[in-house]
Amino acid sequence: MKTEDIDILIARFYQGETEENEEKLLVEYFTVDNTSADYKTDSTVLHSLSEETEVPQGLENKISSLIDSWEEGEKSKTEKIAKLEFRKRILSIAASLLLIVSIGIWYQYNSSVNSEMVNTFEDPQESHEVVVEALRLFSNNFSKGTQTIEKADNRVDNTFKIVEQVLSESPVQE
């Protein structure tokens, strides 16, 4: 490569106009020719900036394994969440059933208590005794009622007798 061409490329390099292949040409030139003192600084700059980056071997495999482990981790996490959700659903269904059954039992219990109050006795003897007791109570109350009526009736009779007596004793004024 001619010195003029090198000068042009170097000028373009410092103006930020060189392409990758042109910069490679420059680096190769300075590596092979070891350059004169005129290009000492340019050679240093170009060599320093043209360092090839070595990518660690197996980096892609390492990342690939990491992705696998993340995916595996997410799957097991999802499964755990699904199990928890399932348990929650089962528990909520069980709780709902328990509530429904409780309400049912409570309702049935209340109904049976009411029906006990309304219905007749299953035991005829007991029923008979209750009926006799009720009739006795009724009879007592009825007797009390008739006694009062009899007293009132007697009083009315006595009153009539007194009135008749007074009328018979007093003279008749015509």
């Binding site: 390099f13 410092y14 103006q15 930020g16 106009e17 600084t41 340019d42 700059v45 900036l49």
Partner: peptide
């Protein structure tokens, strides 16, 4: 980008 590259390279030089 080319301007920034140019300034940077010149400063280093």
């Amino acid at each position: 980008v080319r301007q920034l590259l140019s300034r940077g390279r010149r400063t280093i030089k």
